[in-house]
Simulated scan of single mutants.
Amino acid sequence: MKKLLLTLPALLLCACAGTSTQGAHDQLVEGTLENTPPDLLEYCKTTACRENTQFKLKMEDGSSYEYRGAIDPPIVQPDLITLYPGEDVFIEATIEGDRLVDMVVVPEVKSPEKTITMKFWQEPSMADGTDMLLQVDNPFEKFLRYELGMMTFDAEELQYTSSCPVIPGGSGFEHWPYPIFLMAFANLRLVEINDEEVTCE
């Protein structure tokens, strides 16, 4: 599964390729319909893709990075979930064996027993204000595990990062002390774990 996260199609990562406007320090990247890859435009004809994505991050040198996208890949793709900074989403999922399938984004929680909440953001009150936090709420009766990847600003491809299982009926938190452009989740599954066996991997 690490290999899956490291070899995702360019469709997922196309948001990085916008028109860049850079002043002395700050950077603005704009993805317009004109510079959106044709493959993504075609994909979005039959899929509910993101529209008008916007977020702004403080960088480690004190400058800012702002992204504005007209069309971006959907939050849920087959076997994959992605989050941009500032996104707070509800995802309904069906249990098939120990795997979570048929995942779909919903505007509100109507079926709490099968709705995962995911939130990803930059926390200005921590350290120098560049730290990123991830919260995942698990509604199920078993531990929720997933493979986690991230796209940072010093890499050109998705990087695998460790993650901890989320306790049944509870919340899990992850923290990184630097800006992150995108998080990606794969292989979401439910597992039986004794408290003394909980490991982050």
Rank of each mutant, 00 (worst) to 15 (best):
A93G: 14
R189M: 06
E30H: 11
I95C: 03
E60Q: 14
A184V: 15
Y84D: 06
V136E: 04
S63R: 08
D195L: 12
T115I: 10
L41D: 07
V104W: 00
E192D: 15
D26L: 07
Y84L: 14
Q27F: 02
Y67C: 04
A70K: 08
L57G: 02
R50N: 12
P73V: 15
D39C: 06
Q135E: 14
K45H: 09
E87V: 06
Y65R: 02
V109Y: 07
E123C: 03
N52L: 11
L28A: 11
L6V: 05
F90H: 15
D195E: 15
L13W: 02
G62Q: 10
L148N: 01
E87H: 11
D98I: 12
F140G: 02
G86D: 13
G149S: 09
P73E: 05
H175L: 10
D128Y: 01
M59G: 04
Y160K: 13
C16K: 11
L133I: 03
Y178H: 05
V89G: 06
L133A: 05
T47F: 00
C44V: 08
G169I: 14
C16R: 12
M151S: 06
L12G: 02
E108H: 13
T7M: 06
C49E: 02
F120A: 08
S171R: 14
M151D: 01
V106P: 03
Y178V: 00
C14K: 07
D154W: 03
L148Y: 01
G69S: 11
C200N: 09
P179F: 08
R50I: 15
G169M: 09
E51A: 13
I75W: 09
P124L: 00
M183C: 01
G129M: 09
G62C: 08
K110D: 14
D128Q: 07
T36L: 11
P38M: 07
D39H: 08
L8T: 11
A186M: 08
S111A: 12
